[in-house]
Design a protein around this nucleic acid. Sequence first.
DNA 1: TCAATATTTCAAGAATCATTGATATTATGG
DNA 2: CCATAATATCAATGATTCTTGAAATATTGA
Lengths: 111, 111
Amino acid sequence: MDEKQALDAFAALSQETRLRIVRLLVTAGPEGLPAGAIGEAMDGATSSRISFHLSHLEHAGLVVSRREGRSIIYSAALPVLSGLVAFLMRDCCQGHPEVCAPAVAALSSCC
Amino acid sequence: MDEKQALDAFAALSQETRLRIVRLLVTAGPEGLPAGAIGEAMDGATSSRISFHLSHLEHAGLVVSRREGRSIIYSAALPVLSGLVAFLMRDCCQGHPEVCAPAVAALSSCC
DNA sequence: TCAATATTTCAAGAATCATTGATATTATGG
DNA sequence: CCATAATATCAATGATTCTTGAAATATTGA
């Protein structure tokens, strides 16, 4: 994860629909969801709108896709999400462990 | 940290100059840096440009400021950064601890 | 093969954002 | 109190981004 990748990832996560899609896909797990189901979950957004955001997320590396029959299945790119957090944390902690302590606590309690 | 705050924070972090400012301030620690020094560190950006980005970051809650004589000193809002990571992680881990493991490892090794 | 389904691509318009240069505000030293 | 220093604000411009609606592509079942 370099600066360019981090900027792309943050830009992708800074849009309401995309942030919700990422969160939906992360909870959906590795099996993922077809584009149509994602659109229905987003207040029934139009297909072109969902396609635009999914393409954006995929380009940023936050999701991956595969075809299954007529559907395209999207799932969260878990290692990239981890890498983004690691990037932010790596640069957060230089000499100031108090930055990380609450984040570590949040991670420990959720996993 | 709610969705709105997270969106603002991600938007702030998705701009190159602002991401660099945040990283600079985090490494600078609680004592912070005056706006002028931050501008010099950003390839000598104009004062209005730095002021614009600092204002943006402060509005997003990622930095705080205080006056000291003629200078305004900016420093990273460490608890907010922690909260952002916790927000992302909290929603990342639902039933899928493999998302968090690498992030936990990165945090553990840096603090 | 044909019709229907699922999704993507494209062009155009509105909205938001970043940069610049000029001007205003605030504070200090002499 | 004045001149200077440090920073913020404002207006204008150019660049990106989001949304919509229409048309294109890919896949399957009958």
